[in-house]
Amino acid sequence: MIPLSAEDLARFKDYNPTRFSFLMLKLQLNGDWIYLTDRDVPVTYAGATYVPGYITSESIGDIEITSEPATNDVTVTLDARDRTFVAYFLQEGWMNGSATIYEQFADKDGVILTLNIFQGFVDSRDLIPEKQKIDVVLASVWADFEKQSGTKTNSGSQQRYYPSDTAFDHVARAQRKIYWGKPAPVTTTATTTSGASGSGIFSNPNSEL
Score class of each variant (00 low, 15 high):
residue 104 Q to W: 06
residue 4 L to Q: 08
residue 43 V to T: 06
residue 64 E to V: 03
residue 9 L to F: 09
residue 164 S to Y: 14
residue 168 F to D: 06
residue 180 W to V: 12
residue 152 K to Y: 11
residue 2 I to E: 07
residue 72 N to D: 10
residue 32 D to W: 00
residue 26 K to D: 06
residue 110 G to L: 09
residue 42 P to F: 07
residue 84 T to N: 03
residue 13 K to G: 00
residue 93 G to C: 03
residue 92 E to V: 15
residue 4 L to E: 01
residue 165 D to N: 15
residue 88 Y to K: 14
residue 186 V to L: 03
residue 140 S to A: 06
residue 155 S to Y: 04
residue 186 V to T: 04
residue 176 R to T: 09
residue 166 T to I: 08
residue 132 Q to T: 12
residue 192 T to M: 04
residue 190 A to M: 04
residue 33 W to A: 12
residue 201 I to Y: 00
residue 193 T to E: 14
residue 166 T to Y: 15
residue 111 V to A: 08
residue 29 L to H: 00
residue 200 G to P: 02
residue 159 Q to W: 10
residue 34 I to Q: 12
residue 77 T to S: 09
residue 155 S to M: 14
residue 169 D to L: 07
residue 85 F to I: 13
residue 184 A to C: 08
residue 73 D to W: 08
residue 96 N to C: 06
residue 161 Y to K: 13
residue 38 D to T: 10
residue 80 A to E: 05
residue 57 S to C: 09
residue 63 I to L: 14
residue 128 I to G: 04
residue 180 W to G: 03
residue 161 Y to W: 14
residue 173 R to Q: 13
residue 22 F to T: 01
residue 57 S to N: 10
residue 192 T to C: 02
residue 172 A to R: 11
residue 181 G to A: 02
residue 87 A to I: 13
residue 25 L to W: 05
residue 21 S to Q: 12
residue 22 F to P: 00
residue 157 S to G: 09
residue 31 G to R: 02
residue 152 K to M: 11
residue 70 A to L: 06
residue 193 T to W: 12
residue 104 Q to G: 06
residue 123 D to F: 12
residue 35 Y to V: 05
residue 120 G to F: 07
residue 62 D to R: 07
residue 129 P to W: 03
residue 10 A to E: 09
residue 195 G to F: 04
residue 85 F to T: 07
residue 200 G to E: 05
residue 30 N to P: 03
residue 152 K to I: 05
residue 207 S to P: 01
residue 25 L to C: 00
residue 133 K to E: 15
residue 63 I to R: 11
residue 204 N to H: 05
residue 25 L to N: 04
residue 40 D to Q: 15
residue 9 L to A: 12
residue 124 S to G: 05
residue 35 Y to N: 12
residue 138 L to F: 12
residue 59 S to E: 09
residue 7 E to F: 08
residue 65 I to S: 09
residue 190 A to V: 00
residue 128 I to N: 13
residue 72 N to V: 01
residue 204 N to F: 00
residue 174 A to W: 08
residue 38 D to G: 00
residue 76 V to K: 02
residue 123 D to M: 07
residue 41 V to P: 04
residue 81 R to T: 15
residue 88 Y to E: 14
residue 102 Y to E: 04
residue 190 A to G: 05
residue 39 R to Q: 10
residue 13 K to C: 04
residue 20 F to I: 00
residue 8 D to H: 13
residue 164 S to F: 11
residue 209 L to P: 08
residue 139 A to R: 13
residue 173 R to T: 12
residue 195 G to V: 13
residue 108 K to Q: 08
residue 13 K to N: 03
residue 80 A to C: 03
residue 190 A to E: 10
residue 82 D to T: 06
residue 69 P to W: 06
residue 6 A to V: 10
residue 127 L to Q: 02
residue 37 T to K: 03
residue 163 P to H: 14
residue 127 L to W: 03
residue 79 D to N: 15
residue 144 D to V: 03
